[in-house]
């Protein structure tokens, strides 16, 4: 059994995993970080998106063993130690960017990556970026509004 060491939300962890253990299984089942969701088995829905070394990736389509030494951030790692929400989380709340909330952790993680890569993304670019994040509730309008507001707030906070 491979042993992996990685940093998850700033905390170093070590775990014994099987070759086939997915990152999302390690996060949810071993580390108890159940904010990262699983919404499909075809790598298409994006509910499982986390950051691997700062870039968004689908944790259902990565092996834990691949990520030995990596720096992982999940939705639980976005808020400050004092519980203050990340500007993107705040923006989703302010703009009613969620209904049932199932897709939201992946949406927010994907949105934070976009805001870092392309801080002034147009509405069209935001919609293109969400290709891999499916929401069955909102119709996306308020998600797009949330991301515009969140990206602006992230810029302002710099």
């Amino acid at each position: 059994m491979p042993q992996v060491s990685m940093t998850v939300n700033g905390r170093p962890i070590k775990a014994d995993v099987e070759g086939r253990t997915l990152l999302v299984q390690l996060l949810r089942e071993k580390l108890g970080l159940t904010g990262t969701h699983v919404g499909c088995d075809t790598s298409q829905c994006g509910a499982c998106v986390v950051h691997v070394d700062g870039k968004s990736a689908k944790s259902c389509t990565l092996l834990a063993a691949q990520l030995d030494g990596a720096n992982i951030t999940t939705i639980e790692g976005l808020a400050g130690a004092d519980g203050k929400l990340h500007p993107m989380q705040e923006a989703f709340r302010d703009n009613h960017g969620l209904q049932c909330g199932f897709c939201t952790p992946g949406m927010v993680m994907s949105a934070v990556d976009l805001a870092k890569t392309n801080p002034n993304a147009s509405e069209h670019e935001i919609r293109e970026w969400l290709e891999g994040n499916i929401c069955r509730c909102t119709g996306y309008h308020n998600i797009v509004k949330s991301i515009q507001a969140g990206a602006a707030a992230m810029q302002a906070a710099k």
Binding site: G46, V49, K58, T61, W129, E131, G132
Partner: peptide, 9 residues
Amino acid sequence: IGDPQVRNR
């Protein structure tokens, strides 16, 4: 190709 997360990996 695909979506940003697929393109990252």
